[in-house]
Amino acid sequence: MNGRARRGSAESRHLLSDFLRHELGLTGTHVGCEHGVCGACTVLINGEAVRSCLVFAVQCEGAEVTTVEGLAAEDGELHPLQEAFQAAHALQCGFCTPGFLMSLLPFLEERRDSGALTDDEIRDALGGNLCRCTGYQNIVEAVRLAHTKMSGGAGNSAGNSVGTSTGNSAGTCAAEGA
């Protein structure tokens, strides 16, 4: 689980999404529909993007599972894909975002060495995840930006005219109080 061995017990009928959230406390994986349409609960199982609401926890015994909590570096530095989402304002409520990130990771890894991505390719890659806030446009920009960063290249710089950083991007908001 995100590079560490984790143990827990699950009834045979427990969904992986519930097990991650409520047994392991990894609440970054969100549950939007529980019937495999919205993609909010997407995680990586052995490197492949999978909807955790359509998998039983017991099926993952011994598997390598990556959730959104495993994306940023230990020191908190954002993954280039996360950074691109912030730069392009590709999230609003942020509920669907972990699923988008996890769906996109294998896509971007696979396309790391390919040339510039077309809009159609990007939109196809996003087609299995629903977002109700953004209208997808900025997510398309974020994917293009992340692809450029992850390919280590300049040359494909469309969509850079977004968000001004404030120097300190550490979260300074507060809404909770559990």
Binding site: A72, G76, Q82, Q86, L91, G163, S165, E176
Partner: peptide
């Protein structure tokens, strides 16, 4: 100004409380 959102890092890391 088109300032990047301050709330995003927590949401992006799966650390925001819902």
């Amino acid at each position: 100004e088109p300032i990047r959102r301050l709330e995003d890092p927590r949401l992006l890391k799966g650390k925001a409380l819902f």
